[in-house]
Every structure is written in structure tokens, then in C-alpha cells.
Design a protein around this nucleic acid. Structure first.
Lengths: 200, 200
DNA sequence: TAAGGCATGTAAGACGTTACATGATTAC
DNA sequence: GTAATCATGTAACGTCTTACATGCCTTA
């Protein structure tokens, strides 16, 4: 859309709109911002702890791969959104990161308002994406697919529950996050039942 | 998780598990697979048409940027999942891509079963991610945030409706996709109401 | 005291975005 | 006929994944 306008206008428009670019450097990615939030939430912590939290999440969005997190936190430090000092556990060296005042400001800005355009979207749901093309599958494959999807949603519900048990006690917003997961999973299940009815 | 096992085991494990790697080349990305699906659905078409459909989607997942789509379809052709021939509209040259038998097989494999692990996840919802850290915001910011999020969900509902009007007539699965969007948006709205109550 | 997982990283590469370029076509 | 937009790309860049490397530390 932005692209379909004249090039010159687009360039000006992009830079001008939505405050995507902060004064210094480009806008933070979702992963960078989320990491910032985790450091705020956990207090001073090592990249490994951040990774553990991500991997415990029911969302595969946050893979918490080392190759992403270590350089990312270094980047955030270079931008003075995090600060770090060396620490150790026994003989093992760690680096402990804490959030700075600027980091907190950046976190608040990311949360919004304003919400960036990309946040005004339906969620990304890999089951929905696949269902769109079920017409390309054989009837047998469709039935099996629905069965698998039901199982998947059951496992997801369990993951949400487990996450709630482990981390939901943090603050009231963490509890609301779980609640979102519950309501959403319920909605997806009802949807899948409708799909099964239509095809059954 | 996979990473936390011994390295050698991890390597074998990754390659062995879930059929992520096809005999030739690596697994298709979500975008590649989705593109394959669109070409199947639209019939022979140009990259530009694919992009138009993506940009019309209520999901910002599918940005449909030129720099992604043109090389991507070329890649799929190199792997014989698409085939193309030059065509023209008036004086303007186009390249028209159709799906091959191998492409259809790859599409079916992507749809599953089996569903890959990454598909067994809560959806990615930028509003939920942000809500998690509302504790870092001031009470005033929180109230404003909720207001903005409500507006966002309203706009999303409209987008889903509009999409349904334009494309929902295609086949029954497209209709189910819209239905998913409706149910999900409804769930998110109810969730947001709970959030407002808790904080209000 | 050896095995295995814990914890901390780095290097190379793939993928997608942003920005740019350019000719064809349409609207006025 | 000229300005805007359509349509088709390409190039550079940043981010994240995958794969690898390497010491610590626990436990049997």
C-alpha cells in the first residue's frame, strides 16, 4: 500500500508516519522489544535466563535461540537501553543485564499507544493458514488433518495451563496473558468443531 | 530444547524428526508454502497478483513485499514446484507461474498432517505481547492503551468483513478462514473487556 | 572420573524488508 | 501530454536460524 504511492511521497510518508524511527537508530523489532520487557520483568539477568523464559513460552514465536539473543542484548546495550556487568556463578562467568531509564522509555513507547500498523492485524495462526488450502487435499487427508489439529489445540491448552502454573503468579498482567491464551484456544477449538461439521 | 541435548544427538535428531527436510533442499518457509497455496488457488498468475492477494489480507504476516515475492517464486521454480512462461498484457511483459504436480505434493505436505512443532503454538498476537508489560506503563498510559486496542480490534473486524466480501466466495475453506477471523476477533474483544474491568 | 547436560557464546547463511529504478498505462 | 499509479523487478542490508565450539558442573 505505502509502496503503491509515488516513490518520493512514499519515502517521506514512511519516515514521517507512526514514529517508527526513533531519533537514534531504527525502530526496535518485536523480539528486541519483548526482550527489553523480559529484562524489565525479571530484573537484572543473563541472556540465558531470557532464553529460558522464551523457551518456556507457549508461543513458538519466541524461539530464544542463542544466536539471536546474545547479539541482540549486546545491540541493546550499545544503544544504552540495557546495561551490563560481568558476574559469576561459582567459576562460570556470566554477563548480567539490567534495563536503563532509556530502556524503560523505549519499552513504554513500544507498548503504545500508538500501536503500529502491523499490530492492527488478525493474529498469525499456522492452523488457519493451512486450513485455507484444505481444498487442495484429499478428503482423507482433510479428516486426518482435523484430528491432528484437535490434538494440537489440546496440547496448546495444556501448555497455557502449565505456563500459568509456573509464571502466572508474577503480576496481574501475566495472569491476563494466560487468560488471553485460554479464550483464544477456546475460540480456535470452537472453530475447528465448525470445520469438522462442515466437512463431516 | 532440542539444543539442550548433546550436540551430536541434536544434529541427528533434527534431521530425523518431523520430516522438515525434503529429499531435495530444505523445508519450505511459511511464506513459500503460502505462496504455493495461492498459486494453486488462483491458477496461473503473476507474482504481482500474489502480492495483491497478500496485501489484501487482514494479516500483516503477509506483507507481500516485492523483494520477497519475486525471488521467492523464482526459487520455487528452480525447485520445480512452480513453472513459468513469459506472457504479456498489451505491451507489458509478465511472467506467469503455475503450480506443478510436485508443487501440489509439497503444498499437501505442508498442510499436514503431520503438523510441524512450530504450528502447535498459541497464535502470535502483538496485542497480547504488549499487554504482558502493561505493568511497566503508567495508569494513564494503560487506559489509553486499552482504548486504542479496542479501536484496533474494531478495525480488524471490519477488515475481516471486507475480506469476506471480496474473497470469501471462493470455496468453502475460504469461508471457514473468515469464520476463524470472526471467532478470534470476538474472543480478543471479550478478553480486552476483561482487561478493562480488571483495571477500571 | 567420566558422561551428559548446563551455560555461554560465535560464524555462516537464508530470508525478508527497505529502498531504489524503470517502463507501461491510465486519468485528467 | 503530463502526472500519478500500475507492474516488474533489483540491490543492500539487518535479523534470525542453524550449526558449531567450548569450558563448567553435577551425578552416578
Amino acid at each position: 500500500m505505502a509502496e503503491s504511492t509515488a516513490n518520493q511521497a512514499a519515502r517521506k510518508g514512511r519516515r514521517g508516519s507512526a514514529g517508527l524511527n526513533t531519533k537514534r537508530g531504527r525502530a526496535l523489532s518485536e523480539l528486541e522489544s519483548f526482550t527489553l520487557g523480559l529484562v524489565w520483568q525479571l530484573g537484572p539477568c543473563s541472556p540465558y535466563e531470557v532464553r529460558r523464559h522464551m523457551r518456556a513460552s507457549p508461543s513458538s514465536q519466541w524461539s530464544g535461540s542463542a544466536g539471536a539473543i546474545y547479539p541482540l542484548m549486546r545491540r541493546l546495550e550499545k544503544r544504552k537501553l540495557l546495561e551490563s556487568k560481568p558476574a559469576r556463578t561459582g567459576k562460570r562467568a556470566r554477563r548480567e543485564y539490567g534495563i536503563t531509564a532509556g530502556g524503560l522509555a523505549a519499552l513504554r513507547q513500544w507498548i503504545g499507544p500508538p500501536l503500529p500498523e502491523e499490530a492492527v492485524t488478525v493474529t498469525y495462526d499456522p492452523l488457519r493458514s493451512r486450513a485455507r488450502f484444505l481444498g487442495a487435499a484429499t478428503p482423507a487427508q482433510r479428516r486426518q488433518w482435523i484430528g491432528e489439529a484437535e490434538e494440537a489445540l489440546e496440547r496448546i491448552a495444556e501448555m497455557v495451563e502449565k505456563w500459568q502454573a509456573s509464571f502466572g503468579g508474577g503480576d496481574e498482567f501475566l495472569r491476563l496473558v494466560t487468560r488471553n491464551g485460554e479464550l483464544e484456544t477456546e475460540a480456535r477449538r470452537r472453530w475447528l468443531m465448525e470445520v469438522a461439521e462442515r466437512l463431516g
